[in-house]
Amino acid sequence: MSTDTSDASIDDAPSRAELAARIEDLEESLGATTEDDTKKMSIIATKGTLDMAYPPLILASTAAAFGYDVTVFHTFWGLEILHEERSKDLKLSSVGNPNMPVPNVVAAIPGMDRVTTKMMERRIDDNDTASIAELIETSLDMGVEFQACQMTIELMEYDEDDFYDEVTTGVGAATALQEMADADIQLLV
């Protein structure tokens, strides 16, 4: 449409009213894109030991306190955290953990996990650190969405009723991926 001659471009120049309408359109579309400025966080929780249950729950509840929309997708051993009964009895393994106060050769003795777990539980209690159950309940109160991977539920032969009531089941990798694509922060724990 436009030509290189300056006269013609003046003729083709949009009118004031056209420009005003265009600005209005642009402002409208800008408004639509910035309307939802709520930040989102998506965490994939794959571990079910006592120590590894903490990071996703602490980050999820804290992000919710910031006003973020938070989704935690639990898969494989991460499901233990959402299992109402098993979440209260998560274990700590001292085997292969050089930070534990027992050498591997001792750590491998049957019953040692129970001992190290008790030790850790006592410390958590003495330090007034929140329990896993407390963090789950607080997170739920603050609107965190916990999702349980359907494939792993079936693999572990769990029943949907085994999980906390508010847990979303019947979701898979595509759901998790979609949440991650929409999120400002994505973490795999």
């Binding site: 602490i58 509840s61 804290t62 306190a65 330090n127 007034d128 650190t129 929140a130 963090l135 607080t138 603050m142």
Partner: peptide, 10 residues
């Protein structure tokens, strides 16, 4: 008082 991370913020 006594509570540790993340409870004070929550």
């Amino acid at each position: 008082k006594g509570a540790s991370c993340p409870m004070p913020v929550l």
